[in-house]
């Protein structure tokens, strides 16, 4: 079953008088339970693609179907709802709320989805336990190590059981040992049947994925299996 279907997507930025074609006719299909790495040098358009896949941004032209629904011209609020239910983000800089503890950070997407308080707390706790942080529930991000912070972020991405997990350089701010652990966690999450899209420029990180898409100048250069 395909989750993501991009047809001839372009994204053009206007920088003063200059037009920048960040994405230039991208067509792409991603199926359920795929594990995809998007690679490319800086300026190749991988961040832009990630933003569009994550419904944070909309394409200038082209069609984006998410689970068969056209999202390319949805309103901001509709996109917010899609992000909330269908997409889990993991960022390079963790992007946790600094004044909230781990538990509250993970609980937040469920608050926005309007889930009942008791159920919400139970699920948030379960998810944190599943990433191995059951004894860090009430620690603030500043009281956690980098690896632990990224685990909180992963728990936050998983907590709504989204259709895809979008990870943007998830190990970029971690040492190689911790980064390796995080990648093992992603592998495990994939094995549980989740769809993962990984944006990275590190070959050894991309190797964990089952499919590698290489971008260059806003176009797909190579799209290959990685067995």
């Amino acid at each position: 079953m395909n989750i993501i279907n991009l047809e001839n997507i372009t994204r053009i930025y206007q920088l003063g008088s200059e037009e920048v074609r960040a994405l230039d006719g991208i067509s792409l299909r991603i199926d359920k339970n795929e594990y995809v790495a998007i690679m490319g040098p800086s300026g190749s358009g991988k961040s832009t693609l990630m933003n569009i896949l994550g419904c944070l941004d909309t394409p200038t032209s082209g069609k984006y179907d998410f689970k068969g629904i056209n999202v390319s011209d949805m309103s901001d609020n509709e996109l917010a709802e899609i992000r909330n239910r269908e997409i889990g983000f993991v960022f390079q800089t963790f992007n946790l709320l600094p004044r909230s503890n781990a538990f509250h950070n993970v609980e937040l997407p469920l608050i926005y989805s309007g889930m009942h308080s008791l159920k919400r707390k139970e699920i948030a706790k379960e998810t944190l336990t599943s990433v191995g942080l059951e004894d860090r529930l009430h620690h603030k991000p500043s009281e956690l190590s980098g690896g632990q912070r990224q685990r909180v972020a992963i728990a936050r991405a998983l907590v709504t059981t989204p259709s895809i997990i979008l990870a943007d350089e998830p190990t970029g701010n971690l040492d190689s040992k911790t980064g390796g652990d995080i990648m093992l966690l992603f592998n495990a999450i994939h094995k549980q049947g989740n769809t993962i899209i990984l944006v990275t420029h590190e070959e050894y990180i991309a190797k964990h994925a089952k499919r590698i898409i290489r971008l260059l100048d806003g176009k797909i250069e190579i799209d290959e299996k990685n067995e």
């Binding site: 944070l56 917010a80 709802e81 992000r83 983000f89 709320l97 937040l108 926005y112 989805s113």
Partner: peptide, 8 residues
């Protein structure tokens, strides 16, 4: 961050 995780 809040918008990314679904705040309207």
């Amino acid at each position: 961050i809040r918008k990314a995780i679904g705040a309207k």
